[in-house]
Design a protein around this nucleic acid. Sequence first.
DNA 1: CCAACTTATTAAAGTTCTTTAATTACTTTC
DNA 2: GAAAGTAATTAAAGAACTTTAATAAGTTGG
Lengths: 343, 343
Amino acid sequence: MKLPFVQPKMMGDMIRRQIRAVLYRDLVSTTAELAQSTGISFPTISKTLDEMNNQGEVVLTGLGASSGGRRPKQYRLNADHMTGLAVALEKDYSSYALLNYVGEVIGREKLPGVLHDGPERLTEQIGTFVQRYPHLRALTLGVPGAVNNGRVFHIPDYEKFKNFDFKALYEERFSLRVQVENDMNATVLGYHDRSGDDQNRSLVYLYLGQNGPGAGIMVNGDVVRGSSFFSGEVSFLPLYDSQNFSQAVQEPPSAQDGTERRAKLIDAMSRLVAVFTATLNPHTVLFCSTDLTERDLADVRKGSASYVPADNLPSLLVRDWEEDYFHGLNQLTIRTMLGLGID
Amino acid sequence: MKLPFVQPKMMGDMIRRQIRAVLYRDLVSTTAELAQSTGISFPTISKTLDEMNNQGEVVLTGLGASSGGRRPKQYRLNADHMTGLAVALEKDYSSYALLNYVGEVIGREKLPGVLHDGPERLTEQIGTFVQRYPHLRALTLGVPGAVNNGRVFHIPDYEKFKNFDFKALYEERFSLRVQVENDMNATVLGYHDRSGDDQNRSLVYLYLGQNGPGAGIMVNGDVVRGSSFFSGEVSFLPLYDSQNFSQAVQEPPSAQDGTERRAKLIDAMSRLVAVFTATLNPHTVLFCSTDLTERDLADVRKGSASYVPADNLPSLLVRDWEEDYFHGLNQLTIRTMLGLGID
DNA sequence: CCAACTTATTAAAGTTCTTTAATTACTTTC
DNA sequence: GAAAGTAATTAAAGAACTTTAATAAGTTGG
């Protein structure tokens, strides 16, 4: 019984968002094309585009090709209108990506990790970017921990960040739009965006990280956070009589045959796939290239078919985790800049 | 990057929906109250309400109490404006509920089951209702099988209904708005509505039916259908070295101690709860009173805490399955009547 | 190079909402 | 039981969109 409703007051705002979204997607567009793909009438598009041009949000790049009539003005987003910063906080490094208003990465830096040191170091690092880039307006932080509305409240091994409210602090201090996201959630979002696939898909992105395995889950196009932000903590899955997923995957203390160990890993993964198939029945399950090879994947595919009917299995893919993760953070940042966030 | 957008053309329609939704919720309301709770200006509400009154969709029930001024006109939905039919197709019976425009059950019938006989019997049964109730406009069918857009495409044991397109046939034949939903999906929806809880919750509704166990899953307030409509088929969950959920729950062929059997059931259930907690981390997991007692539930609660940290466990509840199921079907019907469906 | 044709842009008129004002219908109080 | 007060309803003015018409700017072909 949810009724999303747009009051006339918000129309102007909505129209701008639509324009931004299309301009971001198509890079360059004309009034007629925008009217076409947004469904908004061309006089309105024209008027709004004028305003956006005056405010420096879009720029006129010239005239388009003609097919027998007056040549149309072409607009695109002004790359310099705003810049955003996407930060991945990992144990060993902080990865910073600077993004312009059209979504291009205009700078990338890896600085020392701050998770052990504490928030002060992070604030310093961010501060330098704020100084260097006066158009900085959006900041996205990816963290390996549970996040609720900009505050980290469960981050094992990095006690100094526990209960640290990134959003409150940095919005105040730097006057930026700040959002914080769990790393696997950002990753699954990143894949979803890169895949270009239809909206509303269900995905599971699995990572056997250093801090124990975890999964990012997306259902019907939305990230699943869980009632206590515990979603995707697959290490606890009771998949064997006396072992959970984590224990099955972990290297056993006793010397063990390599092939046997591999078989165990494959089976655990197969069961994991079966678990998701028999619950969410997702379209795709993603693995990290650091965790599994293509050959492993084939075996997992076979293995999981012994647990659930093969017709219902998701497609399994091996991915570069870092790429998807960074892309997810970038994506979140750009959406914020363009005003297309969740709000 | 989804942008729900309301064009001015659809405003009128949206306004009516808002009014219906509030009127359904509050039963009776005045112009001022409607303007208040919808956020729409009172002249617009007034005008729309007039139209709806002329068309017989709402009725004027009198004047409200005054607090020192002119007494306000009170409107409510016209119960007779439309009627809907919610049907649960089970093996042993077909349960029919007739609903008026304010959501009241104005008739209930249990007719013989039709699943074994085939679609003709069902068409007959429905036909009698169509004849008897000229205001019938909406039909909802609940079926124990996988459904895709009004067509059943996987319904074990009831071959005659396989690939039967309820929606196409009955919309044509009876000119009704028809929707078909899987039984467990309708059930979880029914609970969600009855609970009155906040939107956007994640729920799992478990049922150890005759046709093998199944679950209805809701994430962030949306029913999860899965890529091949296989979601919730928890019987396949590999929870033990050499048994899946279904096998663990099933009565073993050998004579076995009753308490031992119970312990096994409890453990399987505990693991199931653990599986959902470590993946979706739902707010609540529901069980059927036919499957589990309150005492069992306490043991499950304890048991699952041995698999995942207790803080993250969902609340566990025992429910009357049929009640929630029927309520879910009714709810779907009413939403369709009021134009609040998914569309 | 100009007439005929296309297409973009600008302008005007029409809808439909909101906001504000005026009127009407009650209540309350003296 | 008026007069004063309060709240609902109706009416008028304003805002922001769409639709339709008019105009401007190019193309193309003889």
